[in-house]
Design a protein around this nucleic acid. Structure first.
Lengths: 386, 386
DNA sequence: CCACTTAAGCAACGCTGTTGCTTAAGTGCA
DNA sequence: TGCACTTAAGCAACAGCGTTGCTTAAGTGG
């Protein structure tokens, strides 16, 4: 055997060495993710083997462990196809819970979800993000305590926290949050983790929303963008099945994409930013104009990143869904017409992000859940380019 | 042990199951990549252990295998630091070769490189890409034969082929190449693989260039964009250390980003595309105007993807390097001024892509080499957010 | 000269997914 | 009713991975 055929770990570009526990964890998470994707119907062991590329025996061992730990269970039998009928396996959603927090500028949404990502409890409260740390932390602590009060629930894995940016996901520290500069440098993740005695994860609201939306997608949905238009305009990017945050959690700053050279001045100091165009149009009641600006930005996004789908969310969009959906799809259709010929795709689909006002909070909980469920569902089966 | 602590394979989101050979291949590729990054100076086994997170003993076993296969060798001793001096290990660059082809619209560049990515032989020939398949394939075959004629060379791993897009990297099929529509649907990768009897890989010229540039970078360079301005304008994106192609190899269509609503008509049918603005400005001798349009696009890229660095290349840029470097850095500086405050970075650096006219051909060879050398050098050591 | 430090290899080991075979539980035709 | 066949899943033995514990190699420094 020559050394020319290193499998390179399934095409994955990892950066650290892997040992046997890591191998086991990888495969376990992968199986758990497929169980989750299968939902109530469940999957048989052989189907899991086919989807993972593992042998049936390996899947049997892994699922046996998961059943022992209470994370998976049998879910009846399939109809026979000429032999012994397959036993369906499914996730036990109630085996663990997670908490998701959406700290917006004027309100707090807190959810408690099960392993399937379904909300078990929801709480809403007004919140003045700019009112100072102690005040805000007190409210957060009270709301989370109320969520966790349900006594005999399953173990809670952690707390996911979503905020307006900028912030640093890696260190869990807030930066100069627009409209609330006194939070600059505040180590929100570690402070909350200490108060709750639970692991915490911090991310931008748009990133959390995109991560949450990446679950509910049909298996193999590769890349999409979530555009959030509320008091500001931002985006969450899922590229190749995983959330792209950028080196400094700065990715997705969609609002200050310049689409009009020498256009109107934006609050950021530049000219012709999408956000400035959009907000000005909304302010003067020109919804088609706002939707058109958003649509041009969406088209640029699609062109640059070759994404499959655009999802819209945020209060302003939710207030006028038809106008924004129409405007953005017109812009994408115009773009698609520029690329005729076979082999190229048709217009990218546009839709409202499901979940409505709870999109971000659900996604925040996903920040905690996602590490349990390995990568995206398999796109390429095996056979490398040989 | 609860099940709440799945290591998730070093933070990597893989999509297929992993077995022991895959584990071994992953670690071997990782070590090989670090050996390559170390260059002539080499690395000691203990340093490799620290960088990979593997135990020294594991590194010893892996490097012993690599030495047996002739891919690695000892490279003298380090100075002692109070104990036994460390033995430096280095890659044996000449152990394998790879071929890179750059099929441009009017010329062919073919290189033969060693494992370090250094060119061992280079050939240039005029080529009319639009002259039909048989003509082009004949020229390609003759040039590659000349490159491989060196008789007693090491094994050649394969041929990397870089072309103007659009095309599909996964299937190796060309689409409607601008200016040469008769190639639409041609399975170039498989045809060349069959003719040469070697594995072949096909990708867009901009992607190949970006992949090649991602090697030579200082360890840990996360994300950058390569902007190529020649007869057209395109980009190659390296995000989080690995090349981002998009689901259909469509990512990096930078030229048709719209930066001027209702701007001048572009050949693509839309209005205000960067490419149209740039090419028109170049045509009328307005280099500052062209550089400004490019700079605004670069600033949008930086803003959206949070990248660390912008590299410029392509004939038009190489003809007037100072003007384009200046214009783009001014645009990025203006953007950086909009983001004051601590925690945010300063302006992104801009530079000419090293390699000059051979950037793409070198990168094409890298299409073959990259799978041998695992992921990027480690950025985060270990300690997950706990 | 000897204690100490650092580098690297040898041997045994635990644990992974795999292989080979057996058992379980159906279908379908004579 | 019986038997051949098919498909699902588990048991047992195994090869191979990185790890652990210890030994050997080769320097520095008082």
């Amino acid at each position: 055997m020559t050394s020319t055929d290193f499998p390179s770990f399934g095409g994955v570009a990892g950066s650290v060495g892997a040992n046997l526990p890591a191998l086991r964890g990888h495969n376990t998470a992968l199986v758990l993710g497929l169980l989750r994707a299968a939902g109530e119907a469940g999957v048989s062991r052989l189907e899991l083997a086919a989807q993972t590329g593992l042998t049936p025996q390996a899947v049997s061992k892994i699922t046996a462990r998961l059943r022992t730990e209470g994370l998976a269970a049998e879910a009846g039998r399939r109809a026979s196809t000429g032999g012994k009928p397959a036993t369906a396996l499914r996730l036990v959603p109630g085996a663990r819970h997670a908490v998701g927090l959406h700290l917006d500028r004027d309100e707090l949404t807190a959810v408690r979800v099960d392993l399937a990502g379904r909300a078990v409890a929801v709480r809403h409260t007004p919140l003045a993000l700019a009112a100072g740390a102690e005040r805000v932390l007190g409210t957060v602590e009270r709301e989370v305590a109320a969520l966790l009060a349900g006594a005999a629930g399953p173990p809670v894995l952690g707390v996911g926290v979503a905020c307006p940016g900028p912030l640093d996901h890696t260190s869990g520290v807030l930066h100069r949050v627009t409209g609330a500069p006194e939070w600059d440098g505040f180590p929100l993740r570690d402070v909350l983790a200490a108060r709750f005695g639970l692991p915490a994860v911090l991310d931008k609201d748009t990133n959390a929303a995109a991560l949450g939306l990446a679950q509910g997608m049909p298996a193999g949905a590769g890349s999409f963008g979530y555009l959030h238009l509320g008091t500001g305009l931002g985006a969450g990017l899922v590229l190749g099945g995983s959330l792209y945050r950028g080196p400094r959690t700065g990715a997705g700053e969609f609002g200050h994409q310049i689409v009009q050279l020498d256009g109107p001045r934006c609050g950021c100091g530049q000219r012709g930013c999408i956000e400035a165009l959009c907000l000005a149009a909304v302010a003067r009641g020109d919804l088609p104009g706002a939707a058109r600006a958003l649509g041009v930005g969406a088209a640029n996004l699609v062109e640059l990143l070759d994404i499959d789908r655009v999802l819209l969310g945020g209060r302003t969009v939710l207030d006028h869904p038809e106008e924004f959906l129409g405007g953005v799809s017109r812009a994408l259709a115009a773009q698609a017409r520029t690329r005729g010929g076979p082999g190229t795709r048709t217009a990218v689909s546009v839709a409202l992000a499901p979940g409505g006002a709870r999109t971000v909070a659900d996604g925040a909980a996903e920040l905690v859940l996602a590490p349990l469920f390995g990568g995206r569902p398999p796109v390429r089966q095996a056979g490398q380019g040989d």
